[in-house]
Computed example of a mutant assay.
Amino acid sequence: MRRSAPTLALRLAVAGLTGLAGLPACTAPDTEAPPAPAGLTAQAGSATSAHVMWDAAADRDGVTGYQVFEAGRLVRELPAEKTMVDITGLTPQTAYAFTVRAEDAAGNLSGPGPAARVTTPAAKAEDRTPPTPPAATTARATGPRSAQVSWTAAADDTGVTAYDVYQGGVRIHTAGPDASATTLDSLRPDTVYTFTVRARDGADNSSPDGPAVDVTTPPASGDGPGTAPAAFTATASPGAVTLTWTAPDTGRATAEYELYVNGRPTTVIQFGAGAVPSGRAEHRLTVTEPPGTVWAVKLRARLPDGNWGSFSAERRITLIA
Rank of each mutant, 00 (worst) to 15 (best):
T288Q: 13
P114M: 08
A15V: 10
T242Y: 00
A95K: 14
E314P: 08
A33S: 11
A147K: 00
A42I: 03
G224N: 06
V294F: 09
A21H: 08
A38S: 10
P211C: 11
P189F: 01
R76K: 15
L90G: 03
F232I: 02
A80W: 04
R3S: 15
F69C: 11
S312G: 05
P92Y: 09
A102C: 10
R117D: 15
A155E: 15
D156P: 15
T83Q: 12
V68M: 05
A220Q: 14
L243K: 14
D305S: 12
D86C: 02
D178N: 14
A56H: 11
V75W: 03
E258P: 00
A154W: 03
A220F: 07
A313I: 00
A179L: 08
Y257V: 13
G168R: 04
D127W: 08
L20P: 06
A240P: 06
A115I: 02
W151G: 02
T129H: 08
Y257F: 15
W308V: 14
G111S: 07
A28V: 02
P131R: 10
T250M: 11
D86P: 04
A116Q: 02
S180E: 15
P112V: 05
T244I: 03
G279Q: 14
R128S: 12
P112L: 01
P229S: 01
V170H: 01
Y96N: 02
D55M: 10
L299A: 13
D55H: 11
P225H: 07
R200S: 13
A56W: 09
T250R: 12
P6M: 00
A153F: 00
D156A: 15
S146V: 02
I172N: 06
P121H: 09
G72N: 04
G62M: 06
A155Y: 14
P291K: 09
A71H: 10
P79Q: 12
F271W: 05
L187M: 04
A321K: 11
A21I: 03
I269P: 07
Y193M: 04
A228N: 14
R60I: 12
V241N: 12
V261P: 05
R264Q: 13
G176A: 13
F232T: 06
T152A: 14
I317P: 03
P208H: 03
W295K: 03
V68F: 05
A116P: 02
V165T: 13
P114K: 04
F232D: 05
R264C: 07
N108Y: 01
A153I: 01
A58W: 08
T288E: 13
D305Y: 09
T18R: 15
L12D: 15
G107M: 10
R302Y: 04
D201V: 02
S46W: 00
A240Y: 08
A95N: 14
L78N: 04
L10H: 11
T250V: 14
A123H: 09
D204T: 12
